[in-house]
Write a protein that binds this DNA or RNA. Structure first.
Length: 479
RNA sequence: GGCGGUAUCGUCUAGGGGACUAGGACGGAGCCCUCUCAAGGCUCAAACACGGGUUCGAAUCCCGUUACCGCUACCA
């Protein structure tokens, strides 16, 4: 068997959409799993809507996700001459013909049909024009398009996702393949390019199912071997409609900026329309490659659930070693003004330990940054709710904090010793440990939520910890 | 309207004739653990769209209905 060749072919008219990313992922997984080749083609033939910025966004999105392509990027717009040559070849071999009907005329006939409640289909009138008239009008420079002459019969194929899909050809009109300005129509350009690129498996969204019979006919008219087809289900928003801006973030870049890890995004996307079978859910990219099979592809559209994405991200965050996490979190800490790359580098062990503490209780890298503040800034800000709840009785709290500081200042700075010391204090005072730990947490972090209190003490260090408790005492005095 | 596609908990899904009292996960409710929050463990609520067949037996196969989605351009 020859090497499978697949492609992802987005049009650069926006950002990399999660649906597009999912299509790219499945193509990529199939290629990686089966020793195939994954290609990228930018479908920039619609000059009015295509932008360079969008093209860049697609590259950036795919790169961030880690979906690398194997050969030079193909720009559809650069292949105009071949598209025209292929269309002309069909004119020459009799599978296409010239049509002089103007858009205005067609529009009028369409409206008439609609008024009569009939479905409009091109009536092939130009295919019945006498040869001499066609030649005369061509010589006269009359604008015309090239239409494909749809043969009788049925066009069908065995889809890798669905089973057999069949279209009666009588329902397909003689569609345009080359406009009057000699630019190709979508289906023409796609088939010409897919043939030129040697694509053996076309895997795309199932909104293309009705394009497929047309494309199959073009392959045949051009005398080319058919690729296999796989039509993936759509991704919908929570209201069951096609995912769009109304549903919030739809660009993969949005999720990148929300602190989602590429591995989690990929894992989540993979499960939208594919299942490895059984209960398997959290997977690395390598595991997905190993498990990937077209048998697990789903036919039904899937709803994009941001909640599950966040959970998935939390799972990946917890499993990612600090050393791997650091490159993603460091820029965020720097941007937040908490540290410089150099200072983090000089305290690498401490930094990694902190990441290990924070990652398990975070769902996004942004969560990590939010929780990291107390370990970097000098003047922590006190969360009003935390203060209200844990420092209710100012005098008593001050007293407890003072005693705590006394103890800690005389205690060896390790978790076991500090815990023993503070538990002893609690016992002496006849209170629960929490009655000490909770106010202490607020004093140290300003927050009601943090890693275990002794981890916090350790991360902060003796000096900083004692200073913060003292500051808290002062604050409680003035109150 | 025509053509095509799809149909299991709210959501992602397992399931491919008997192992189904329909399993897992997210989300929800509760409990445990516990210095808080996560994580983890346990429990609960929650689904085979409907109607006909086929079969000893149907979530699973067939047909119809319904609903939803897509396409129906000199857009991609």
């Amino acid at each position: 068997m020859s090497v499978p060749r697949l492609r992802f072919a987005p049009s650069p008219t926006g950002y990399l959409h999660v649906g597009g990313a999912r299509t790219a992922l499945f193509n990529w997984l199939y290629a990686r799993k089966n020793g195939g080749v994954f290609l990228l083609r930018i479908e920039d033939t619609d000059k009015a809507r295509s932008t360079e910025e969008s093209t860049r966004a697609i590259f950036e999105g795919l790169t961030w996700l880690g979906l690398d392509w194997d050969e030079a990027v193909v720009y559809q717009g650069a292949n105009l001459e071949r598209h025209q040559a292929d269309a002309d070849r069909m004119l020459a071999n009799g599978t296409a013909y010239r049509c002089f009907c103007t858009p205005a005329e067609l529009e009028e006939r369409r409206r008439d049909a609609e008024a009569r409640k009939e479905s409009f289909k091109y009536d092939r009138r130009c295919d019945r024009l006498p040869r001499e008239e066609v030649e005369r009008r061509v010589r006269a420079g009359e604008p015309h398009v090239l239409r494909f002459r749809v043969p009788d019969g049925t066009t069908e194929w065995d889809d890798l996702v669905h089973e057999r899909i069949a279209f009666p050809n009588k329902d397909i009109e003689d569609f345009v393949i080359l406009r009057s300005d000699r630019t190709p129509i979508y289906n023409m350009a796609v088939v010409s390019d897919d043939i030129a690129m040697g694509i053996t498996l076309v895997m795309r969204g199932d909104d293309h199912i009705s394009n497929t019979p047309k494309q199959i006919m073009l392959y045949r008219a051009l005398g080319s071997e058919l690729p296999k087809f796989a039509h993936l289900p759509m991704i919908h928003g929570t209201d069951g409609k096609k995912l769009s801006k109304r549903h919030g973030a739809t660009a993969v870049g949005d999720y990148q900026h929300q602190g989602i890890l590429p591995g989690a995004m990929l894992n989540f996307l993979a499960l939208l329309g594919w299942s490895p079978g059984g209960d398997r859910e959290v997977m690395t990219l390598d595991e997905m490659i190993a498990l990937f099979s077209e048998d697990g592809l789903q036919k039904k559209a899937a709803v994009f659930d941001p909640k599950k994405l966040e959970w998935m991200n939390g799972q990946h965050l917890s499993r990612t070693p600090a050393a791997e996490l650091a490159p993603r979190v460091t820029p965020l800490l720097v941007a937040a003004g908490y540290a410089t790359e150099a200072t983090l580098d000089s305290r690498r062990d401490w930094y990694y330990a902190l990441l290990d503490l924070l990652k398990v209780r975070a769902r996004t890298t942004d969560d990590i940054v939010r929780q990291a503040a107390p370990y970097f800034v000098d003047d922590i800000s006190y969360d009003p709710d935390a203060v209200a709840k844990q420092w209710k009785d100012a005098a008593a709290t001050r007293d407890v904090l003072h005693a705590t500081r006394e103890r800690l200042s005389k205690t060896e700075w390790n978790a076991a010793a500090m815990e023993e010391s503070l538990r002893q204090l609690a016992e002496e005072r006849g209170i629960a440990g929490g009655k000490i730990f909770q106010p202490l947490r607020v004093a140290l972090t300003g927050l009601a939520v943090s890693p275990g209190i002794f981890d916090v003490l350790l991360m902060l260090g003796r000096e900083k910890s004692l200073r913060r408790i003292e500051a808290a005492e002062r604050r409680l005095t003035t109150k």
